[in-house]
Structures are given as C-alpha cells and as structure tokens.
C-alpha cells in the first residue's frame, strides 16, 4: 500500500497542468501503484476565499472517496475560517493545508497559531509546503516566498501539541527542525541517491517521515524512485510508504482499493 501525502487538485494559473481532474489523478495513481492520495485544492491557493476551493474539491472527489483523503485549505486572516473548518471536518477533511506564502501571513501570527491549535483540538494534521514551484523561473505575478525552516521551527515550538507535516523541504536532515518531535517530513524535495532521506530517518526515526510526490505540479515517478532507493529495513519503508500517514490522518477504517479499469 502507498499513501501519497502530497497531491493537488485544481488549476495552477501560471502553467498548464497535465492533469486537472480527480479522474486524471486516479489514472496516474493506478499507473504508479498509489492507493490513496492526500489531496488539497490548488484553486484555494489563489482564491481570495480559499473555502470555495475546498467545496469544489470535495465535490470533485466525492465519487472516489475511497481513494482520496481531503485536506482543507484555510486562510487564518480571512473571516469565517472557524465555520469553514467545521464544514470541512463534517465533509471528511483529515487535516489542513496552509499557504502562508500565498495568503500573506506568517506561521507565527496569532491568527495562524489559533487555527493550528484548533486543528489539533479537532485531531487534524497540519501540512505546509515550503514551496509550490522553483523560484528561479517564477511567473512575474507569483512573488511568493519560500517558507524558511526557522519559521516552521517557531511554529513547532509555539504549538508543540500540533502535528505538523513539512512538504517539499530539502536540507532538513541537517537542520534543527528535526529536533521537534511534532514535526513530520515528506520526502519529495529530498535526494535519495546520495542518502539524504536515509540520514533523515537515522536522525528523526522512521515514524516521522512520509511518502509524497507533489503531483500533478511535479512528476510522480521521481518520488517513486526516491522511495525505492531508501536503504532501510522493509518495516521502515512500509511506515514511510503508508503506515505513518495512516496514523497521522486517523484512517481507522479499512479503505478498499477500488481501482479504475
């Protein structure tokens, strides 16, 4: 079983994406052996009211609910997030996806801390991508910063009870972030061939690392290769491929793997 912790659904206004529908993502998942995708709305990144993107996402994946685990995108600076969060939870969202670099706030702003605490109280995981694209070739309208590891560290310190998954990070094995037991790491930004993922596992243990790809912003196959190159016992690889994500998301019921023909 493989759970991809880092999948997007929607449009990206700066570049045409190869896949923009739930069905398209499912086809690629089946081709690549992915059983479950943890998915959030890409539209929500640039909508003023991100919750509209959540509702679009929930509608799009409704008929494939066995294969998708939705995360809610909320902006703690935007009014009404408390009610939006409740609605997302009621519709099966298992966590939050935050984009402070696009929603114009810092992870340590009071409003953000309040949202993260609320998420924890509702048993939701909080996931934060360090970046959504490489800054060297950014579109002229896309001036979002990369989230630095120090900002993430401060969030982990301020809300130690919250479970925070850092997506798209690199260089974390050698950063102080690994010292925070409430921080988890997704592998798509790290190298495997030269041992970065192995080193991370050695430093943080095998319970705080999860598989993810960034699809369809990024090709899925690179992440698959990374997983194949992990030089650790089979039980460790299993934890990274799905068991850790399964626990983080509280997926307590068996999900049948209904595949497309």
């Amino acid at each position: 079983m493989i759970i991809d912790f880092n999948v997007y659904l929607g449009h990206w206004p700066f570049r045409r994406l190869c896949v923009r529908t739930a069905l398209g993502i499912l086809r690629q998942m089946d081709r690549s052996g992915i059983d479950i995708a943890v998915v959030s709305s890409l539209n929500s990144v640039l909508y003023a009211d991100p919750h509209d993107g959540n509702l679009e996402l929930l509608q799009e994946i409704e008929q494939y609910s066995e294969r998708f685990v939705p995360l809610a995108v909320l902006n703690p600076k935007y009014p009404g997030w408390e009610g939006d969060l409740e609605e997302c939870i009621n519709h099966g969202c298992k966590g939050l996806r935050l984009y402070p670099q696009y929603h114009n706030y810092s992870l340590t702003d009071e409003e953000c801390l309040r949202l993260v605490k609320r998420a924890h109280e509702s048993n939701l995981v909080v996931s934060i991508p360090v970046r959504l694209r490489d800054g060297r070739g950014r579109h002229w309208m896309d001036s979002a910063r990369d989230i630095n590891l120090e900002e993430l560290k401060q969030l982990a310190e301020r809300v130690p009870e919250a479970k925070i998954v850092v997506l798209e990070a690199r260089g974390v094995a050698d950063s102080p972030l690994f010292e925070y037991p409430n921080v988890y790491f997704e592998i798509s930004g790290m190298d495997a061939a030269f041992g970065e993922i192995d080193r991370l596992i050695e430093r943080v243990g095998d319970s705080r690392v999860v598989f993810g790809s960034g699809f369809p912003l990024k090709y899925l196959q690179s992440a698959i290769l990374k997983a194949k190159l992990i030089r650790k016992p089979e039980e460790t690889v299993e934890k990274i491929l799905w068991k850790n994500a399964y626990g983080l998301l509280g997926l307590d019921q068996k999900r049948p793997s209904c595949r497309l023909n």
Binding site: D191, A192, A193, Q221, S222, A223, I224, L225, K226
Partner: peptide
C-alpha cells in the same frame, strides 16, 4: 538524480 530520471519515466 531521481528527478532527472523520474521526469523522463513519467
């Protein structure tokens, strides 16, 4: 490395 191969495989 994985990026280089993965983008062509994918």
């Amino acid at each position: 490395m994985e990026e280089g191969i993965g983008k062509i495989l994918g």
